[in-house]
Design a protein around this nucleic acid. Structure first.
Length: 416
RNA sequence: GUGGCUGUAGCUCAGUUGGUUAGAGCGUCAGGUUGUGGCCCUGAAGGCCGGGGGUUCGAGACCCCUCAGUCACCCCA
Protein backbone atom coordinates (compact mmCIF):
# COMPACT_ATOMS: atom_id res chain seq x y z
CA UNK A 1 0.00 0.00 0.00
CA UNK A 2 1.87 3.02 -1.24
CA UNK A 3 -0.32 6.03 -0.71
CA UNK A 4 -2.08 6.45 2.58
CA UNK A 5 -3.83 9.36 4.15
CA UNK A 6 -1.80 11.32 6.68
CA UNK A 7 -1.80 10.40 10.34
CA UNK A 8 -4.85 11.58 12.18
CA UNK A 9 -7.06 12.08 9.13
CA UNK A 10 -9.93 10.02 7.87
CA UNK A 11 -11.81 9.30 4.68
CA UNK A 12 -15.54 9.27 5.00
CA UNK A 13 -16.94 6.63 2.68
CA UNK A 14 -20.61 6.62 1.67
CA UNK A 15 -21.67 4.58 4.67
CA UNK A 16 -20.01 7.21 6.85
CA UNK A 17 -21.10 10.31 4.95
CA UNK A 18 -24.68 9.19 5.40
CA UNK A 19 -24.23 9.45 9.14
CA UNK A 20 -22.51 12.82 8.83
CA UNK A 21 -25.26 14.26 6.68
CA UNK A 22 -27.89 13.08 9.11
CA UNK A 23 -25.99 14.64 11.99
CA UNK A 24 -25.56 17.91 10.16
CA UNK A 25 -29.22 17.98 9.31
CA UNK A 26 -30.24 17.60 12.95
CA UNK A 27 -27.74 20.24 14.04
CA UNK A 28 -28.94 22.76 11.45
CA UNK A 29 -32.52 22.07 12.42
CA UNK A 30 -31.92 22.95 16.06
CA UNK A 31 -29.71 25.94 15.24
CA UNK A 32 -32.39 27.39 13.03
CA UNK A 33 -35.06 26.91 15.68
CA UNK A 34 -32.93 28.88 18.10
CA UNK A 35 -32.42 31.38 15.27
CA UNK A 36 -28.71 30.93 14.85
CA UNK A 37 -27.52 31.40 11.31
CA UNK A 38 -24.57 29.79 9.66
CA UNK A 39 -21.23 31.46 9.19
CA UNK A 40 -18.50 30.00 7.01
CA UNK A 41 -15.00 31.30 7.26
CA UNK A 42 -11.79 30.17 5.55
CA UNK A 43 -10.04 27.05 6.74
CA UNK A 44 -6.92 29.14 7.27
CA UNK A 45 -6.29 32.55 8.75
CA UNK A 46 -3.28 34.71 9.39
CA UNK A 47 -1.30 33.02 12.14
CA UNK A 48 -1.38 36.20 14.16
CA UNK A 49 -5.11 35.89 14.76
CA UNK A 50 -4.73 32.65 16.67
CA UNK A 51 -1.63 33.75 18.51
CA UNK A 52 -3.43 36.83 19.69
CA UNK A 53 -6.77 35.26 20.58
CA UNK A 54 -5.85 31.86 21.94
CA UNK A 55 -2.57 32.99 23.45
CA UNK A 56 1.04 32.19 22.61
CA UNK A 57 1.57 30.36 25.86
CA UNK A 58 -1.06 27.72 25.18
CA UNK A 59 -0.30 24.27 23.82
CA UNK A 60 -2.71 24.80 20.98
CA UNK A 61 -0.71 27.72 19.66
CA UNK A 62 2.67 26.65 20.97
CA UNK A 63 2.90 23.21 19.49
CA UNK A 64 -0.27 22.06 17.79
CA UNK A 65 -0.89 24.47 14.94
CA UNK A 66 -0.46 23.69 11.27
CA UNK A 67 1.40 26.81 10.29
CA UNK A 68 2.99 27.51 6.93
CA UNK A 69 4.32 30.40 4.94
CA UNK A 70 2.68 31.12 1.60
CA UNK A 71 4.44 32.37 -1.49
CA UNK A 72 3.88 35.95 -0.48
CA UNK A 73 5.76 35.34 2.74
CA UNK A 74 2.66 35.50 4.91
CA UNK A 75 2.37 33.16 7.85
CA UNK A 76 -0.91 31.27 7.66
CA UNK A 77 -2.42 28.67 9.96
CA UNK A 78 -5.11 26.07 9.49
CA UNK A 79 -7.73 26.98 12.05
CA UNK A 80 -7.41 24.99 15.27
CA UNK A 81 -10.79 26.23 16.48
CA UNK A 82 -13.54 28.49 15.30
CA UNK A 83 -14.16 31.18 17.88
CA UNK A 84 -11.24 33.32 16.76
CA UNK A 85 -12.39 33.21 13.14
CA UNK A 86 -15.96 34.06 14.02
CA UNK A 87 -14.81 36.99 16.11
CA UNK A 88 -12.49 38.16 13.35
CA UNK A 89 -15.34 38.07 10.84
CA UNK A 90 -17.64 39.81 13.30
CA UNK A 91 -15.19 42.67 13.66
CA UNK A 92 -14.11 42.78 10.02
CA UNK A 93 -17.67 43.09 8.70
CA UNK A 94 -18.85 45.21 11.59
CA UNK A 95 -21.69 42.82 12.30
CA UNK A 96 -22.21 44.51 15.63
CA UNK A 97 -23.11 47.68 13.77
CA UNK A 98 -25.85 45.93 11.82
CA UNK A 99 -27.53 44.06 14.66
CA UNK A 100 -26.87 44.48 18.35
CA UNK A 101 -27.00 40.75 18.88
CA UNK A 102 -25.58 38.34 16.33
CA UNK A 103 -26.23 34.64 16.65
CA UNK A 104 -24.01 32.50 14.49
CA UNK A 105 -23.33 28.81 14.11
CA UNK A 106 -20.83 26.73 12.21
CA UNK A 107 -20.01 23.19 11.20
CA UNK A 108 -16.62 22.41 9.78
CA UNK A 109 -13.12 20.94 9.95
CA UNK A 110 -10.46 22.11 12.43
CA UNK A 111 -6.80 21.18 12.49
CA UNK A 112 -4.48 20.41 15.36
CA UNK A 113 -1.24 18.50 15.22
CA UNK A 114 -1.61 16.24 18.26
CA UNK A 115 -1.00 12.57 18.76
CA UNK A 116 -4.24 10.98 17.57
CA UNK A 117 -6.34 8.80 19.81
CA UNK A 118 -9.95 7.85 20.24
CA UNK A 119 -12.06 10.90 19.54
CA UNK A 120 -9.07 13.02 18.67
CA UNK A 121 -7.93 13.47 15.11
CA UNK A 122 -5.66 15.98 13.44
CA UNK A 123 -8.35 17.04 11.08
CA UNK A 124 -11.50 16.88 13.13
CA UNK A 125 -14.89 18.48 12.89
CA UNK A 126 -16.73 20.75 15.21
CA UNK A 127 -20.07 22.39 15.32
CA UNK A 128 -20.84 25.25 17.61
CA UNK A 129 -22.53 28.55 18.04
CA UNK A 130 -21.61 32.01 19.21
CA UNK A 131 -23.96 34.59 20.60
CA UNK A 132 -22.35 38.00 20.23
CA UNK A 133 -23.56 41.16 21.89
CA UNK A 134 -25.53 40.19 24.96
CA UNK A 135 -24.13 40.14 28.49
CA UNK A 136 -27.28 38.48 29.86
CA UNK A 137 -27.20 35.11 31.58
CA UNK A 138 -30.13 34.17 29.37
CA UNK A 139 -27.72 34.24 26.44
CA UNK A 140 -25.35 31.87 28.25
CA UNK A 141 -28.20 29.52 28.94
CA UNK A 142 -29.44 29.71 25.38
CA UNK A 143 -26.15 28.42 24.02
CA UNK A 144 -26.25 25.61 26.59
CA UNK A 145 -29.74 24.71 25.48
CA UNK A 146 -28.71 24.61 21.85
CA UNK A 147 -26.08 22.01 22.65
CA UNK A 148 -28.24 20.02 25.05
CA UNK A 149 -31.18 20.06 22.64
CA UNK A 150 -29.08 18.71 19.80
CA UNK A 151 -27.90 15.81 21.93
CA UNK A 152 -31.34 15.13 23.30
CA UNK A 153 -32.97 15.13 19.88
CA UNK A 154 -30.36 12.71 18.63
CA UNK A 155 -31.43 10.38 21.39
CA UNK A 156 -28.51 10.88 23.76
CA UNK A 157 -29.70 11.30 27.32
CA UNK A 158 -27.03 10.07 29.69
CA UNK A 159 -24.72 13.05 29.61
CA UNK A 160 -23.01 14.95 32.38
CA UNK A 161 -23.56 18.66 32.21
CA UNK A 162 -21.07 20.60 34.28
CA UNK A 163 -20.94 24.32 34.87
CA UNK A 164 -18.70 26.75 36.67
CA UNK A 165 -17.75 30.39 36.67
CA UNK A 166 -14.18 31.42 36.06
CA UNK A 167 -14.70 34.99 37.19
CA UNK A 168 -13.39 38.07 35.48
CA UNK A 169 -10.37 40.42 35.70
CA UNK A 170 -12.14 41.94 38.69
CA UNK A 171 -12.07 38.83 40.86
CA UNK A 172 -9.88 36.23 39.21
CA UNK A 173 -6.44 37.69 40.06
CA UNK A 174 -7.22 37.74 43.75
CA UNK A 175 -8.52 34.20 43.62
CA UNK A 176 -5.53 33.01 41.66
CA UNK A 177 -3.26 34.46 44.31
CA UNK A 178 -5.19 32.72 47.03
CA UNK A 179 -5.01 29.43 45.15
CA UNK A 180 -1.30 29.79 44.51
CA UNK A 181 -0.84 30.52 48.18
CA UNK A 182 -2.61 27.30 49.03
CA UNK A 183 -0.77 25.20 46.47
CA UNK A 184 2.78 26.49 46.76
CA UNK A 185 3.56 24.76 50.06
CA UNK A 186 2.40 21.51 48.44
CA UNK A 187 4.69 22.04 45.48
CA UNK A 188 6.89 18.99 45.99
CA UNK A 189 3.99 16.60 46.24
CA UNK A 190 2.29 17.81 43.08
CA UNK A 191 2.83 15.99 39.80
CA UNK A 192 5.60 17.44 37.63
CA UNK A 193 3.03 18.77 35.18
CA UNK A 194 1.15 20.53 37.91
CA UNK A 195 4.32 21.92 39.40
CA UNK A 196 4.91 23.67 36.10
CA UNK A 197 1.36 24.93 36.04
CA UNK A 198 1.88 26.51 39.46
CA UNK A 199 3.48 29.52 37.85
CA UNK A 200 1.90 29.47 34.41
CA UNK A 201 -1.72 28.58 35.10
CA UNK A 202 -2.43 27.41 38.64
CA UNK A 203 -6.16 27.02 38.02
CA UNK A 204 -5.45 24.16 35.66
CA UNK A 205 -4.04 22.15 38.54
CA UNK A 206 -7.61 21.82 39.73
CA UNK A 207 -8.62 19.73 36.73
CA UNK A 208 -5.50 17.56 36.71
CA UNK A 209 -6.23 13.88 36.17
CA UNK A 210 -3.45 12.90 38.53
CA UNK A 211 -4.96 11.31 41.62
CA UNK A 212 -2.48 12.82 44.02
CA UNK A 213 -3.17 16.25 42.58
CA UNK A 214 -6.85 15.56 42.98
CA UNK A 215 -6.62 14.74 46.65
CA UNK A 216 -4.17 17.54 47.34
CA UNK A 217 -6.64 20.02 45.94
CA UNK A 218 -9.58 18.55 47.82
CA UNK A 219 -9.70 21.51 50.17
CA UNK A 220 -8.30 24.11 47.84
CA UNK A 221 -10.19 27.38 47.59
CA UNK A 222 -12.75 27.24 44.80
CA UNK A 223 -13.42 30.19 42.59
CA UNK A 224 -17.16 30.22 42.99
CA UNK A 225 -16.58 31.20 46.60
CA UNK A 226 -14.43 34.12 45.52
CA UNK A 227 -16.43 35.77 42.76
CA UNK A 228 -17.03 39.49 42.67
CA UNK A 229 -20.67 40.56 43.18
CA UNK A 230 -21.21 40.98 39.44
CA UNK A 231 -19.87 37.53 38.53
CA UNK A 232 -21.59 35.96 41.48
CA UNK A 233 -25.02 37.23 40.57
CA UNK A 234 -24.47 36.29 36.94
CA UNK A 235 -23.60 32.74 37.94
CA UNK A 236 -26.59 32.53 40.26
CA UNK A 237 -28.93 33.70 37.56
CA UNK A 238 -27.58 31.12 35.16
CA UNK A 239 -28.27 28.43 37.74
CA UNK A 240 -31.73 29.64 38.57
CA UNK A 241 -32.65 29.69 34.88
CA UNK A 242 -31.48 26.11 34.52
CA UNK A 243 -33.36 25.16 37.69
CA UNK A 244 -36.56 26.69 36.37
CA UNK A 245 -36.23 24.73 33.16
CA UNK A 246 -35.48 21.54 35.04
CA UNK A 247 -32.15 21.12 33.33
CA UNK A 248 -29.87 18.83 35.27
CA UNK A 249 -26.39 20.12 35.90
CA UNK A 250 -23.56 19.94 38.37
CA UNK A 251 -21.48 22.85 39.59
CA UNK A 252 -17.84 21.85 39.57
CA UNK A 253 -15.19 24.29 40.71
CA UNK A 254 -12.55 22.19 38.99
CA UNK A 255 -13.90 23.01 35.56
CA UNK A 256 -11.56 25.72 34.32
CA UNK A 257 -10.44 27.11 31.01
CA UNK A 258 -6.94 27.52 29.74
CA UNK A 259 -7.46 30.76 27.92
CA UNK A 260 -7.36 34.22 29.38
CA UNK A 261 -10.24 35.65 27.44
CA UNK A 262 -12.77 33.41 29.18
CA UNK A 263 -14.94 35.15 31.74
CA UNK A 264 -17.77 34.10 34.00
CA UNK A 265 -19.62 31.07 32.72
CA UNK A 266 -17.75 27.94 31.69
CA UNK A 267 -19.48 24.68 30.89
CA UNK A 268 -18.78 21.28 29.54
CA UNK A 269 -20.83 18.33 28.39
CA UNK A 270 -19.23 15.00 29.08
CA UNK A 271 -20.00 11.43 28.12
CA UNK A 272 -18.96 8.23 29.82
CA UNK A 273 -18.70 6.53 26.42
CA UNK A 274 -15.62 8.42 25.36
CA UNK A 275 -12.77 7.20 27.54
CA UNK A 276 -10.10 9.75 28.19
CA UNK A 277 -11.34 12.36 25.73
CA UNK A 278 -14.62 12.58 27.57
CA UNK A 279 -15.67 16.10 26.63
CA UNK A 280 -18.31 16.10 23.95
CA UNK A 281 -18.55 19.83 23.94
CA UNK A 282 -17.59 22.83 25.94
CA UNK A 283 -18.34 26.48 26.02
CA UNK A 284 -18.43 29.61 28.00
CA UNK A 285 -18.44 33.35 28.03
CA UNK A 286 -15.60 35.35 26.57
CA UNK A 287 -16.40 38.98 27.10
CA UNK A 288 -12.83 40.11 26.60
CA UNK A 289 -11.95 38.52 23.29
CA UNK A 290 -13.46 41.11 21.00
CA UNK A 291 -11.57 43.94 22.59
CA UNK A 292 -8.42 41.81 22.61
CA UNK A 293 -8.72 41.66 18.84
CA UNK A 294 -9.11 45.42 18.66
CA UNK A 295 -12.86 45.32 18.24
CA UNK A 296 -15.37 47.16 20.37
CA UNK A 297 -16.11 45.80 23.78
CA UNK A 298 -18.58 43.03 23.01
CA UNK A 299 -19.90 40.45 25.43
CA UNK A 300 -20.07 37.00 23.89
CA UNK A 301 -20.81 33.41 24.75
CA UNK A 302 -20.71 30.19 22.80
CA UNK A 303 -19.73 26.57 22.65
CA UNK A 304 -17.89 24.15 20.40
CA UNK A 305 -18.55 20.45 20.14
CA UNK A 306 -16.75 17.57 18.50
CA UNK A 307 -18.55 15.71 15.73
CA UNK A 308 -16.35 12.61 15.69
CA UNK A 309 -16.88 12.25 19.41
CA UNK A 310 -20.59 12.64 18.95
CA UNK A 311 -20.57 9.86 16.36
CA UNK A 312 -18.66 7.62 18.76
CA UNK A 313 -21.25 8.20 21.46
CA UNK A 314 -24.11 7.55 19.04
CA UNK A 315 -22.35 4.38 18.00
CA UNK A 316 -21.93 3.03 21.48
CA UNK A 317 -25.52 3.84 22.29
CA UNK A 318 -26.45 2.03 19.08
CA UNK A 319 -28.37 5.01 17.85
CA UNK A 320 -28.82 4.24 14.22
CA UNK A 321 -29.17 6.66 11.40
CA UNK A 322 -32.31 6.27 9.31
CA UNK A 323 -31.77 4.24 6.14
CA UNK A 324 -31.47 6.29 3.00
CA UNK A 325 -34.52 6.27 0.78
CA UNK A 326 -33.77 3.80 -2.03
CA UNK A 327 -34.13 4.77 -5.67
CA UNK A 328 -37.62 4.24 -7.03
CA UNK A 329 -36.66 1.83 -9.74
CA UNK A 330 -33.83 -0.31 -11.07
CA UNK A 331 -33.60 -0.58 -14.83
CA UNK A 332 -32.73 -3.96 -16.26
CA UNK A 333 -31.62 -4.12 -19.86
CA UNK A 334 -30.80 -7.31 -21.72
CA UNK A 335 -28.38 -6.94 -24.57
CA UNK A 336 -26.52 -3.98 -25.99
CA UNK A 337 -29.44 -2.43 -27.88
CA UNK A 338 -31.67 -2.52 -24.84
CA UNK A 339 -28.89 -1.11 -22.73
CA UNK A 340 -28.53 1.86 -25.06
CA UNK A 341 -32.28 2.45 -25.02
CA UNK A 342 -32.30 2.07 -21.25
CA UNK A 343 -29.77 4.79 -20.63
CA UNK A 344 -32.08 7.19 -22.45
CA UNK A 345 -34.99 5.99 -20.37
CA UNK A 346 -32.94 6.53 -17.23
CA UNK A 347 -32.19 10.06 -18.33
CA UNK A 348 -35.87 10.77 -18.91
CA UNK A 349 -36.98 9.34 -15.61
CA UNK A 350 -34.32 11.25 -13.71
CA UNK A 351 -35.30 14.45 -15.50
CA UNK A 352 -38.81 13.89 -14.26
CA UNK A 353 -37.54 13.60 -10.71
CA UNK A 354 -37.53 9.84 -10.44
CA UNK A 355 -34.44 8.36 -8.80
CA UNK A 356 -33.26 5.28 -10.62
CA UNK A 357 -30.20 3.31 -11.57
CA UNK A 358 -29.25 0.65 -14.06
CA UNK A 359 -26.64 -1.99 -14.76
CA UNK A 360 -23.72 -0.94 -16.93
CA UNK A 361 -22.06 -4.33 -17.32
CA UNK A 362 -24.61 -6.01 -19.58
CA UNK A 363 -24.98 -8.75 -17.02
CA UNK A 364 -27.45 -11.60 -16.89
CA UNK A 365 -31.04 -11.00 -15.92
CA UNK A 366 -30.42 -12.93 -12.75
CA UNK A 367 -27.49 -10.77 -11.77
CA UNK A 368 -29.44 -7.61 -12.45
CA UNK A 369 -32.41 -8.86 -10.47
CA UNK A 370 -30.11 -9.56 -7.56
CA UNK A 371 -28.83 -6.02 -7.84
CA UNK A 372 -32.36 -4.64 -7.83
CA UNK A 373 -33.11 -6.68 -4.77
CA UNK A 374 -30.04 -5.45 -2.95
CA UNK A 375 -30.94 -1.85 -3.69
CA UNK A 376 -34.33 -2.42 -2.12
CA UNK A 377 -36.15 -0.61 -4.91
CA UNK A 378 -39.93 -0.93 -5.12
CA UNK A 379 -39.89 -1.44 -8.89
CA UNK A 380 -37.76 -3.06 -11.54
CA UNK A 381 -38.14 -2.41 -15.22
CA UNK A 382 -37.10 -5.11 -17.63
CA UNK A 383 -36.29 -4.34 -21.21
CA UNK A 384 -35.20 -7.11 -23.59
CA UNK A 385 -34.91 -7.33 -27.36
CA UNK A 386 -38.50 -8.55 -27.69
CA UNK A 387 -39.95 -5.70 -25.64
CA UNK A 388 -37.77 -3.17 -27.39
CA UNK A 389 -39.20 -4.17 -30.77
CA UNK A 390 -42.73 -3.56 -29.49
CA UNK A 391 -41.79 -0.35 -27.70
CA UNK A 392 -42.83 -1.73 -24.35
CA UNK A 393 -41.17 -2.89 -21.20
CA UNK A 394 -42.05 -5.00 -18.18
CA UNK A 395 -42.63 -3.33 -14.86
CA UNK A 396 -42.13 -5.60 -11.92
CA UNK A 397 -43.37 -4.86 -8.43
CA UNK A 398 -40.53 -6.09 -6.25
CA UNK A 399 -42.53 -6.66 -3.12
CA UNK A 400 -45.18 -8.98 -4.57
CA UNK A 401 -43.60 -10.01 -7.86
CA UNK A 402 -46.46 -8.76 -10.06
CA UNK A 403 -45.45 -7.90 -13.61
CA UNK A 404 -47.15 -5.98 -16.38
CA UNK A 405 -46.30 -4.64 -19.83
CA UNK A 406 -46.22 -0.89 -20.29
CA UNK A 407 -45.46 1.27 -23.32
CA UNK A 408 -42.04 2.87 -23.01
CA UNK A 409 -43.41 6.41 -22.96
CA UNK A 410 -45.69 5.66 -20.03
CA UNK A 411 -43.14 4.30 -17.57
CA UNK A 412 -43.01 7.38 -15.41
CA UNK A 413 -46.77 7.40 -14.86
CA UNK A 414 -46.82 3.80 -13.78
CA UNK A 415 -44.28 3.94 -11.02
CA UNK A 416 -45.35 6.99 -9.07
C1' G B 1 5.85 15.28 22.18
C1' U B 2 6.32 10.64 26.09
C1' G B 3 4.91 5.53 27.32
C1' G B 4 2.04 0.53 26.80
C1' C B 5 -0.46 -2.76 23.30
C1' U B 6 -1.56 -4.26 18.18
C1' G B 7 -0.57 -4.87 12.56
C1' U B 8 -2.47 -12.02 8.35
C1' A B 9 -7.84 -11.35 1.89
C1' G B 10 -12.57 -5.54 1.09
C1' C B 11 -14.43 -6.63 6.62
C1' U B 12 -14.09 -9.79 11.37
C1' C B 13 -10.54 -13.08 12.73
C1' A B 14 -7.83 -18.55 12.85
C1' G B 15 -2.80 -19.96 11.95
C1' U B 16 -0.16 -25.31 17.38
C1' U B 17 7.09 -25.20 20.77
C1' G B 18 9.81 -21.54 13.86
C1' G B 19 8.75 -26.83 9.23
C1' U B 20 5.86 -28.30 2.54
C1' U B 21 1.67 -24.91 -2.28
C1' A B 22 -1.31 -19.26 4.07
C1' G B 23 -7.08 -20.68 6.19
C1' A B 24 -12.47 -19.71 7.79
C1' G B 25 -16.89 -16.71 8.08
C1' C B 26 -19.04 -12.41 5.93
C1' G B 27 -18.81 -9.54 1.48
C1' U B 28 -17.79 -9.56 -4.05
C1' C B 29 -18.33 -12.23 -8.75
C1' A B 30 -20.15 -16.46 -11.65
C1' G B 31 -23.18 -20.74 -12.00
C1' G B 32 -27.53 -24.11 -10.12
C1' U B 33 -30.43 -25.51 -18.33
C1' U B 34 -33.94 -21.08 -22.96
C1' G B 35 -35.05 -13.97 -20.09
C1' U B 36 -36.64 -13.16 -13.28
C1' G B 37 -34.56 -11.13 -6.98
C1' G B 38 -34.79 -12.52 -1.52
C1' C B 39 -33.59 -18.50 1.17
C1' C B 40 -30.50 -22.52 -0.18
C1' C B 41 -26.42 -25.16 -2.91
C1' U B 42 -21.72 -25.16 -5.95
C1' G B 43 -17.52 -22.72 -7.63
C1' A B 44 -14.11 -18.59 -8.49
C1' A B 45 -11.47 -14.25 -7.75
C1' G B 46 -8.99 -11.85 -3.93
C1' G B 47 -2.86 -11.88 0.57
C1' C B 48 5.12 -9.49 -1.23
C1' C B 49 1.22 -12.10 6.53
C1' G B 50 2.24 -3.17 7.26
C1' G B 51 7.55 -1.97 5.32
C1' G B 52 13.03 -2.71 5.92
C1' G B 53 17.01 -5.36 8.10
C1' G B 54 18.73 -9.56 11.11
C1' U B 55 18.92 -14.76 13.53
C1' U B 56 18.16 -19.73 11.19
C1' C B 57 18.94 -25.17 6.72
C1' G B 58 14.04 -22.87 7.09
C1' A B 59 10.34 -16.89 9.66
C1' G B 60 3.41 -15.02 9.23
C1' A B 61 5.55 -16.69 14.01
C1' C B 62 11.92 -14.87 17.16
C1' C B 63 15.21 -9.97 17.48
C1' C B 64 16.14 -4.72 15.87
C1' C B 65 14.50 -0.43 13.14
C1' U B 66 10.52 2.02 10.75
C1' C B 67 5.48 3.18 9.45
C1' A B 68 0.44 2.88 10.83
C1' G B 69 -3.48 1.90 14.27
C1' U B 70 -4.96 1.85 19.35
C1' C B 71 -4.98 3.14 24.65
C1' A B 72 -3.06 6.40 28.38
C1' C B 73 -0.25 10.99 29.61
C1' C B 74 0.10 16.12 27.86
C1' C B 75 -3.71 19.11 25.82
C1' C B 76 -8.36 19.69 24.17
C1' A B 77 -14.07 19.33 21.43
Amino acid sequence: MKYQIPTGTKDALPEETRRWQYLEMRIRDVMLRYRYEEIRTPAFEYTELFKRSIGEATDVVGKEMYTFTDKGGESLTLRPEMTASVMRAYIQHNLGGQHCVNKLYYIGPMFRQERPQKGRLRQFHQFGCESLGSPAPEADVETMLVALTIYRELGIHSLNFIINSVGCPECRPAYREKLTGYLTPLGDKLSPESRNRLSSNPMRILDSKNETDQSLTQNAPMIHDHLCPECKSHFQRVQSLLDTMNIEYRVDGRLVRGLDYYTKTAYEIQSAQLGSQNALGGGGRYDLLCADLDGKNTPAVGFAAGMERLLIVMDSLQLSVPDPVPPKVFLIALGEKAMAAMSTIAYRLRSRGIACDMDYLNRSLKAQMREANKLNVPFAIILGEQELEQNICIIKNMSNGDQSSVPLDQIADKIV
